[in-house]
Design a protein around this nucleic acid. Structure first.
Lengths: 218, 218
DNA sequence: ACCTGAACACCGTTCAAGT
DNA sequence: ACCTGAACACCGTTCAAGT
């Protein structure tokens, strides 16, 4: 029995198991051999579904990026940017050990993952010139990525247990069990994002003037 | 001749050669065996000077951190923060392939590397409360790290040649040979940092009030 | 103390072979 | 098409042995 009637592997199965390993054992814990063993299969079998290990990481990054929300630009660019950044941060931060996946990602892939195009369009619609819009999106992305990466460096034992706690179990307001570092990180990120947006309002005022006639500013 | 009269290896020699490899071939190019070969030595010899590979990366991070300047807080916290962030960014960005060293670094090590203590003290001296000072330092650090990491993902061939160009050869104003992406990244970082500081001024005004009596604010 | 040579326990990936 | 078993070319690290 070299193979059952139906395929026992699939891209999604492999990708999810790989993410579980990263959550539980960190980035170093993910090897093709262990991934295969967890799936009850030989390492070579994985190469039927993925060309190489990096492609597995690509798939994980793609999945995490699904939670990013670039659609908040209806009312104001401030709200759109805030929604985007927070969803981006949360998406990565939910799997702290996987943050390095984004760090290793190519520039092109990162751009796609962050939904940079939608964000850019959202900024344009509120009077940001094209070049400045790119810079604003990049600047916000820097902040999110740096925050998510720094936060991911905690006690490995704690970190691995982190994703196990479900959203429902924790309650929206955050449980008192969260360590101090976690709340400080979140608070620092929130403060940084709020301050960045406040500061960008000055830039926006100085740069969107020419378009004020065609499209009323606020 | 199992060994010459004097030791041919030293911690500094190993560390510098390791950084050269990272600059030229990227993080994956650094293996203990290749590092040893470049030094004309067997891999096992390296373990006389470093307990393991991670310790070599520690030494590299420590060296890069030497260029970080946390001493600009004499006149204002804005200038101090700006000096710190820019020197921090430049230190990492000069060795783009080594940026991942900081991403992998433990939280404790990162804190030490960024000279967080000096920065924290500088913020305190200008009226920031302790907790807010931590958040400001963390927020700025997020931005620097995210910017440095994102910038590091370029065409590998270009990137490897990058550190070879000396500061003097490029001129202070930046040469026209810099690719567009590079200038956009720098500009985005500068915009982000300026905006962040501008936004933080509002926070500072709202939070340093109680200390205004004891220490005149501006 | 410092370096060598050989080994151990791993890696990612390939490939002929089976179904 | 999908999976196996064995192999190839690597890793980081250890350790007895030499000087």
């Amino acid at each position: 029995m070299a193979r059952p009637k139906e395929a026992i592997l699939s891209r999604n199965l492999i990708r999810d198991q790989a993410l579980s390993i990263i959550d539980e054992e960190g980035m170093d814990g993910l090897t093709m051999r262990r991934l295969a063993m967890r799936l009850g299969v030989q390492a070579a079998s994985l190469y039927t579904h993925f060309p190489n290990k990096e492609a597995v990481l690509d798939a994980i990054a793609e999945r995490l990026a699904k939670r990013i929300d670039p659609t908040g630009f209806a009312d104001s660019w401030q709200e759109g940017l805030s929604t985007w950044a927070n969803s981006y941060y949360t998406a990565i931060h939910w799997h702290p050990n996987a943050a390095a996946v984004f760090a290793t990602a190519s520039r092109a892939r990162t751009a796609a993952l962050t939904r940079a195009n939608e964000v850019h369009a959202g900024l344009l619609s509120h009077g940001w010139p094209a070049r400045q819009a790119s810079m604003v999106a990049a600047a916000t992305g820097f902040l999110v990525l740096g925050a998510a990466m720094t936060t991911s460096e905690e006690d490995p034992a704690q970190t691995s247990a982190w994703p196990a706690r479900s959203v429902a179990a924790r309650g929206g307001a955050g449980s008192p069990l969260d360590h101090f570092a976690e709340t400080l990180d979140r608070a620092s990120f929130t403060m940084a994002l709020d301050s960045l947006i406040t500061g960008l309002e000055s830039v926006h005022a100085g740069v969107s003037g020419r378009q004020a006639a065609a499209k009323p500013n606020r």
